[in-house]
Amino acid sequence: MKEELIISGRMNPRVDPNLSIWGWEIALYLFVGGLAAGILFFAALYYLMGKEKTFSTAVKWAPMAAPFLLIIGLSALFYDLHHKLYFWRLYTTIRLSSPMSWGAWTLMVVTPLSIIWSATYLPELRPGWRWRYRWLEQLAAFFIANRRTLAWIMVVSSAILGIYTGILLSAFNARPLWNTSILGPLFLASGLSAGAAFIMMISRNPIERHTFSKIDLLVIGVELFFIIHMFMGFLASSQVQIDAAGLFLGGPYTLPFWIFVVFIGMVVPALLEILELRGQRIPVFLPAALIIFGNIMLRFLIVYAGQASRYLY
């Protein structure tokens, strides 16, 4: 058998022997970014559909969490930077070829938008809420009058945020596991399913809960399709991608992926939701929590396994 033994004199920290340039910070950000994107997307969507009243959790309550989620994510991203004092350099240029530049600018739009959106609903949710100053009062009135425009911007920018979390990774051809264009849609779908799960978890309205239960079921189906598609694509591709798929098909990441992400995070909650829709009494917290858990695991496993996949030479 033809073999090659390689001894390298290079031992750069965080690059050798295995790349470990991105850790929990990036995975956490990808998760909260996706979750916030899902929440904001549904809020804007149901507002535009004119269902503000019946779907009040989705439109008014759930988005309150988004600014906090985004701030957690941004803090994690900032913590991950190694040249922190220069972070403002992200905002002195627009690099169309760099997904991270797209992401930085998208966050610049989505984060303030989520704060504005939540703020316009504060007086409704907390009767007696007063904006302290007159100009704040006027500003709030302006945004309330223009909520439709806000919703349109939010529906588009949150979808970009959701897709971007996947594209950030898929743009790296040096890491064959990440280098698949299905990662963008997969992360968008998983962000939407986490958002729907979150809304389901805090909603007290049975109609709303059932609707989001059905949405979750549909999105889980789509996610499973994407995952199967991803592996089909890998296995039909070049050797490096076959090896990358091997990380999840017999390699070191097999059990965590198929048990935590696919079984506990998708199959079990889907079954629980089917049972619940058929009238069984299932605490809604359970499937929602499992979906969110599966979501976190998906981001962590893809971030870590991607860095274990590489070209060999």
């Binding site: 340039i21 190694h82 220069y86 991270m100 790296f172 051809n173 590489r310």
Partner: peptide, 12 residues
Amino acid sequence: CIGCGACIASCP
């Protein structure tokens, strides 16, 4: 450079 690591991940 902000030290984000994207280029390190991108280099085969």
